[in-house]
Design a protein around this nucleic acid. Structure first.
Lengths: 201, 201
DNA sequence: AGCTGATGTAGACAGTGTCTACATGACAAC
DNA sequence: GTTGTCATGTAGACACTGTCTACATCAGCT
C-alpha cells in the first residue's frame, strides 16, 4: 500500500473536484491533484489520457451533484397527480438548479465545460457526459402533461425553454449584470424567471 | 518606428481578440499576442497590469460587438410606435443575441468572463465593463410599455427574465445538451424560447 | 520461482505568466 | 543643439504547468 495507492483514480477525481469547487475549471490543475493525492504528476496518466480527461470526470461528477440536488428538492413535494403538484415540482427543480449554481459556482461552471469532444472520435452521443438534469426536467414536464396541467400541444421543446431560463438566470447572477444583486433582489429575480416560464409555457 | 511600436496597446487587444474568437478566453495567451504584435512578452506590461487585464479588454470589446449586432438588427425594424413593432423589436434583439453567440462562440464566452474584479479594489460598479446589451434590452422593454404592448405592472424585472432566456438558450446550444441540434431544430428551439418569453412576460 | 502487466517514479522539455534590471528613443528645457 | 527625463521596449531569469520517454516496483497467475 506504499507504492500502489489502491484507488488513485478516485482520489484524483476527488482532489480535482475540490479544486473545481473553489476556482472553476481553470483551477483544476493536474499536478495539484496528484500532489494532493501524494503521488507523482505522471501517475495521473495511468488513469486519465490527459488533463482534459480528468476535467471531464469532474464535469461528470458536477453534473451528478446537480441532478442529485434537483431530485432531492423533488422528493420534498408529494406528487398527488394534480396539476398544482406538477407545477410545484417543475418549479422546485428550477429553484434547485439555480440554488446549486449559486451555492457551487465553481462546480456549476465546470459542469458546462465540455469542449473536449470535438476531437474525441466517438460517435457523437456515446461515451458522452449524461445530462441527467435535462432528463429530470423532461420527466417533470411529462408529469405536467399527464396531470392535465399543460396541454400536450405545448409540450414540444418545453424543456428547452424551461432549462434555458433557469440556466440563463444562474449564469447572469454569477457572471452577468445581476452579479451584485442583494439576496432579496436576487430572490425576486429568480421568482420572476420562474413565473415567466410557468406563464409562458 | 522600429523600437516604438506606435500603437501597441491596440495591436495587443486586436491580437487577443483574434485569439479569443477561435478558442475562447483560455486561448488568449499573453505571449502569443505579443508575438503577433512583433514585440517582446514583457512589452505588454507597459499597457496591461497582467494577463487578466488584457483579457478584460477583450471582454469589453466582445461585449461591444454583441451590443452592436443587437443594435444593427434593431435598425432594420422601423418603429412606428405600435405594440406590434415594439414586440418585433424585442424579438429582434433576442435573435441577434443568440445569433451572435452561435456565430462567435469564442467571443461570446469571453464576454462573460469577468472574474477579474473580486480583487480590483474599485467601488463595485465603477470602472467595470459596461453591459450595453442589458441597456439595449431595457430600452426595448421601455418602448414596449410606452407602446401599450406591455402593462406597466409587468415591467419590473422583465429584462432579467428576457435576458436569462436568450442567454440560457445560447449557452445550451453552445455547450449544453442542445449542442448537436441540426440547424432547423436549432431554429425551432430559439423560436420556442422567444415565444415563451413573449407569452410569459 | 519467475514472468507479465498494471501502476507509480525519475528526469526532461517546451511553453506560460511575471519579476528585476537595463536599453532606447521622443520630447521638453536650457 | 545639447541634455535630461520619462514612457516604452528588451534581456534574462524564475517558478509553474502539461506531457513525453525511460525505468522501477509490485500483484497475481502459471
Amino acid at each position: 500500500m506504499a507504492y500502489h495507492h489502491g484507488n488513485l483514480r478516485q482520489a484524483l477525481v476527488d482532489a480535482a473536484v475540490t479544486l473545481a469547487r473553489s476556482g472553476g475549471p481553470d483551477a483544476v490543475v493536474l499536478r495539484a491533484a496528484t500532489r494532493e493525492a501524494g503521488v507523482t504528476p505522471n501517475a495521473a496518466y495511468r488513469h486519465f489520457a490527459d488533463r482534459d480527461d480528468l476535467l471531464g470526470a469532474v464535469c461528470q461528477e458536477a453534473m451528478e451533484q446537480l441532478a442529485s440536488r434537483m431530485q432531492a428538492s423533488l422528493a420534498e413535494i408529494d406528487d398527488d397527480g394534480s396539476p398544482l403538484a406538477a407545477w410545484a415540482r417543475l418549479r422546485a427543480t428550477g429553484r434547485a438548479y439555480v440554488e446549486f449554481a449559486l451555492a457551487e459556482p465553481g462546480l456549476f461552471r465546470t459542469a458546462f465545460t465540455s469542449l473536449a469532444e470535438a476531437h474525441s472520435g466517438l460517435p457523437p452521443g456515446e461515451g458522452r457526459i449524461r445530462m441527467q438534469p435535462f432528463e429530470i426536467l423532461a420527466a417533470c414536464l411529462d408529469g405536467l402533461v399527464a396531470s392535465g396541467g399543460l396541454p400536450p400541444e405545448r409540450r414540444a421543446m418545453a424543456e428547452t425553454a424551461a432549462w434555458a431560463a433557469v440556466h440563463g438566470i444562474s449564469e447572469l447572477l454569477l457572471y452577468g449584470p445581476l452579479r451584485q444583486l442583494g439576496p432579496e433582489e436576487r430572490e425576486r429575480a429568480i421568482d420572476k424567471v420562474l413565473d415567466t416560464v410557468a406563464f409562458g409555457l
